[in-house]
Amino acid sequence: MTFYETVNVEYSIFKGASVQNPYLPYPVRIDGIVVESEDKNLKTFKFVFLNPEDEAKFAYKSGQFAELSVTGKGEIPIGIASSPTEKGFVMFTVNKVGLVSSYLHAMKVGDIMGIRGPFGNWFPWEQMEGKNIVIIGGGFAFTTLRSSIIYMLDPANRSKFKDINVIYGARAPGMLLYRDELVKWEKRDDINMHITVDGTDDPNWKYNTGFVPTITEQKAPVADDNTYAIVCGPPIMIKFTQPVLDKLGYSHDKIIMSLENRMKCGIGMCGRCNIGKEFVCKDGPVFTLEQLNKTPREY
């Protein structure tokens, strides 16, 4: 073997198909689009994989995210709104804010694009087994929380968790996500729903009115060692919910939060989403408040 050949054998390990390129999206087709909010800024997209075997490769857990790849425009990191217990599709709810999300909002059923992932960690399901779960969500940060609720309510999983409380608020009734499902969950006796809006002039509104922190104070169970709170929402909600949880006695290792930051790679390499030494994309997006207290909290 000449030197030249030796070198080439060494490189060939990278040429082989066995090494997955983490930047290569799985091709998907848009299979369904639902307008979620009355301002039409939130749409839910259902995707199916063009290559059926990619669905198995995309095995995920509630709390993870993916990069939606709109060919010719770019990628956006979005939490996975479907649950691993739902088969045959993956689902994402996207707020229309920038170049890629605006373009995606104009796309149609049948259009081809890509998905990379799943990325990041997930809510600590193993650790939360046998515990009470309090979900506190605000606005459009309810996507991975929907995934979590569907996952926990699955007949195969419900017995793994004790009481489930959900406090979910939006600015107005028309801004709540997944309204049909919220109504269904409201009627069940194995989940306590506390839906709220900041305000409404709808005389038929039969749920709560008030900001999420206020409703949390009224409805969330008092903390004990067996209760975890999962909090996802806009910064202002998180800021005012934390003192309430402190008051209710939640220790910071039992307060679970999911962060967002600008991302590109999704795999901890491009360098922009870090909070201190932690990459939100790879070491997160799920952190306990105890962990966040030890970071510069640049999110």
Partner: peptide, 19 residues
């Protein structure tokens, strides 16, 4: 250390580096 991690390997950087 950034491009070659236990979880993910950046194929572009690694192929060029190894060559």
């Amino acid at each position: 250390k950034n491009f070659d991690t236990p979880e993910y390997q950046d194929p572009y950087w690694l192929r060029a580096y190894e060559s």
